[in-house]
Amino acid sequence: MAKKRIVTTTLNGNQTEFLCEPRQTLLEVLRDNMDLTGTKEGCSNGNCGACTVILNGRPVDSCLVLAVEAEGATVRTIEGVATAAGLDPIQKAFLEGAALQCGICTPGFIMQSEWFLSQNPKPTEDEIRFNLAGNLCRCTGYDKIVRAVQDAATTWQDHYMKNCHEKGCH
């Protein structure tokens, strides 16, 4: 069997080491080795976006990243989104807009939306839908999700940008 590797990353702001096999995906290691089970597995082939995390400032499907590739990288997962002060505006918007049912897709949608709003704080509906094309939801339907992102964009725009800036996540 291939030798295990020690991988050093900055995970949700903390320098973190983990041991993994080359064949393990980042998704597997986050969930099984690190107990960070907020990141979900839907399809394991890049189609559903449930496993979306932010790797070096870009959203990726963690099921299509090898954990060893995260050596020296910055990784941000859903566990790093809320702060001691409470939920992030985008999380609040999903909650208040009932933009989830079973919730399996939600961490992926939140990671992708949060990243997107940091790039494009005033998106059109078209832009939101295009940005979320790599995230699938089987229960809620997309309208509520899109509306939650719109709400987050308008209601909490200032807070969001400030918060994000303070966290230094992008």
Partner: peptide, 9 residues
């Protein structure tokens, strides 16, 4: 090519 997450890689 793919969605935004795919395009990152």
């Amino acid at each position: 090519i793919g969605g935004v997450q795919i395009q990152s890689r």
